[in-house]
Design a protein around this nucleic acid. Structure first.
Lengths: 231, 231
DNA sequence: CGTATTCTTGACTTATATCAATGTCGGTGG
DNA sequence: CCACCGACATTGATATAAGTCAAGAATACG
């Protein structure tokens, strides 16, 4: 599949990369379409490639030994993912599955160190990307340690509306199919609790739900909840 | 204060750094002693320096708007910390406090990008360091999402005994002063619950406690608990 | 249409937080 | 050197948020 250079060029990751360097990077890259539900790589697999999402959405999941599942993160267009080599790991720590039809680029992992060493500015960019991800993880830890479930869910939904929201007539619609179960796995709770919370919010006119759909109707109202307003 | 080059040389971070490069790095560095309880940098402060811990232990903490505190991580000798610039942040996201008398090296933040760009192999090392930290964070998220408090505490204690343990007559002693409150803030629970759990463990001969002290007596036993053995 | 997900809702249980009181250690200063 | 004080720890009683169990309804899809 042909790589659309204008799309790649516009990504923040390559802000400071020269056209020449970009060409050299793309020379070794492969683009690929993945259909909704397809797995890009599975937990425990040998890490043969690292990836960049051009279009669509992916969910990265982990399963624990006892079969419990959590969503580690949602991959948005422009995000690097599956860079196990940066973590000194031979295998992928999670499974990446397309939440909607998507387009990805991949490189062989062997090239990671090479690219980073040849291309220090890219190294800085990549490091900032990972750094941001680390900060997100710490935010999540902080929320899970100190906040009750409803606030955590409120934060998660607001984050999704920011990162994957599309303005629609009645509010901001999360632009990919997402289940209550997904939200539960993102916030460390159960689908039952999420369902109850969303029902209550719908009652109060904060959101509008539906099967695998979610639209935030009243952003300020939700934000108030997220910031921990008492009653 | 004079920098001990042999100590620095032995760190994994500089594995692949040449002697010449190392000299150049250290030329701009400042070493400093910090006493127990001292703050190296505070949450929200302008990030003027980034640091490397040579000796001792630090706790990195965050306080939420509503005053709750969590321990983001424990810094061990050889760890980089306070590299806010890698996260594109102007300020420190947390507070670093010496848990015991420590020795640190610092560099001005301005030099971070410079060093990384001049020194691609260091970039790779640094990225691996951050990557490992990311993975630790994900582990913590996974544990908080899926495991009950006792298992989380067991994991936290085992991790500490691995990273900061010193073999003693009756077991592996955590080699810096640590309170029940600290453990609570590391696992997202309360000091009461931690106290109850540790008392129960002491009863069963798994650990030996004491004021700001903790010794793991029966590692396999604790590990069994951590892995989630039913009764 | 029927079949399979996804979602809702109610009743019940339980882990863990909260509230409250008391105990103990270890350093400081009189 | 001893007494006292503040920080840390223990432990019981009670409250409650959220999980579990169970059943059914709605929606999408083949």
């Amino acid at each position: 599949m042909k790589i659309d250079r204008t799309v790649v060029r516009s990504l923040a990751l390559f802000d400071r990369t020269s056209d020449g360097d970009l060409d050299r990077l793309l020379a070794h890259a492969t683009a690929r379409r993945v259909a909704q539900g397809d797995v890009v790589f599975a937990q425990g697999e040998q890490a043969v490639c690292f990836y960049l999402l051009l279009h669509g959405r992916l969910k990265v999941m982990q399963v624990t030994e006892d079969g419990q599942q959590i969503i580690v993160r949602v991959v948005h267009p422009g995000d690097l993912f599956g860079f196990a080599k940066a973590l000194q790991r031979p295998d992928y720590p999670g499974t990446a599955r397309a939440a909607t039809d998507s387009v990805i680029i991949s490189w062989p992992t062997d090239l990671w160190n090479h690219f980073v060493e040849q291309n220090p500015r890219l190294a800085v960019s990549a490091m900032q990307t990972i750094g941001q991800r680390l900060e997100e993880a710490h935010t999540r830890i902080r929320e899970m340690s100190t906040q009750e479930v409803e606030r955590r869910v409120a934060h998660a939904v607001l984050r999704l509306s920011r990162q994957a929201g599309r303005q629609e007539e009645h509010g901001i619609r999360i632009d990919f199919p997402i289940t209550r179960q997904d939200i539960a796995e993102m916030t460390g709770t159960t689908l039952h609790t999420v369902s109850r919370i969303l029902s209550a919010w719908e009652e109060r006119g904060l959101v509008a739900g539906g099967r695998q759909k979610l639209t935030v109707v009243d952003v300020p109202g939700l934000r108030l909840l997220a910031e921990g307003a008492r009653d």
